[in-house]
Design a protein around this nucleic acid. Structure first.
Length: 248
DNA sequence: CTATGGACCTGAATGC
DNA sequence: TGCATTCAGGTCCATA
């Protein structure tokens, strides 16, 4: 394969783009929100940030203002489109050495794996005094729970987003564990969330937001009890919750 | 070590 | 209409 790069992304690629000429893609994986593309020599880490989108095709239109990478392969071209450029494409010689190890080493457990287990989750939360919503977002206990899904999972579990993580009983953490799993599984089924112009490589938008119980519904009636949904700010991010269904 | 606020960057929506 | 302000799905980094 070969690659063309435009404006800088979050970090530099780490090698000369020409070093990718002739490499072969051997497989694709994921860790947290990083995509891992293993090559016959090294691994490409890709991250979509907040506004990134991948497009794949054999005859793509000429690159536009926000198209920052074209990865040309014998099967077609993988294009990264990312208006905000919070995304990244980084080459690493292996996952256990920098830069990959630096980026991945603090990531929490995968929520849909067997390693995500209520008692361990509870034990990890007991070490944290920050608000449960912020601990979920931090991603160092469990990964994959972004701003939308954190609000949704806490609603499903009946937990106030501002409660300290270390104050949650095992029983409540068990509910949260189940809620995170069910929210993420449903989101995957629905093809993810689309607030604005997000789309998969085939141009299809996700439908999770049509399904959101609290996210983006400030002032609207709670679907469970009719109480108006409230919005608060936690660490510069919006959090939505029902003040009646999530009393503590 | 944990917790917090700022930083990165652009575009769309909102307010005066 | 025009211009300024606010907000957006992430996460790293410096500071306390």
């Amino acid at each position: 394969m070969a690659a063309r790069f435009g404006l800088p992304l979050r970090w530099p690629l780490g090698i000369a783009p020409d070093a990718l000429i002739g490499r072969t893609v051997q497989g694709v994986g994921r860790r947290g929100k990083y995509l891992l593309m293993s090559l016959d020599e090294g691994v490409l880490l890709l991250h979509l940030g907040m506004s990134g989108r991948l497009v794949f095709g054999r005859e793509l239109a000429s690159a536009g203002r926000h198209d920052h990478m074209d990865l040309e392969t014998t099967q077609g071209t993988l294009r990264l489109h990312d208006p905000r450029r919070f995304g990244a494409v980084v080459w690493t010689s292996g996952l256990d050495v920098p830069p990959a190890s630096t980026l991945l080493h603090r990531l929490g457990v995968e929520p849909l794996s067997d390693a995500f287990e209520p008692r361990a989750f509870h034990a990890a939360l007991r070490l944290r005094r920050a608000a449960i919503k912020q601990v979920l977002l931090a991603g160092d206990v469990v990964v994959g729970v972004g701003n939308i899904y954190a609000s949704e999972a806490l609603f499903e579990a009946g937990i106030r987003p501002t409660v300290r993580a270390d104050r949650l009983s095992l029983a409540r953490v068990e509910r949260l564990h189940g809620a995170i799993r069910s929210v993420l599984e449903r989101a995957v089924e629905l093809g993810g969330s689309t607030l604005r112009d997000f789309a998969n490589p085939f141009g299809e938008t996700g439908h999770f937001q049509l399904d959101a119980a609290v996210y983006g519904r400030c002032g609207q009636a709670c679907l469970q009890c009719g109480t108006p949904i409230r919005m608060v700010r936690q660490g510069q991010r919006s959090t939505y919750f029902c003040p009646a269904c999530q009393r503590s």
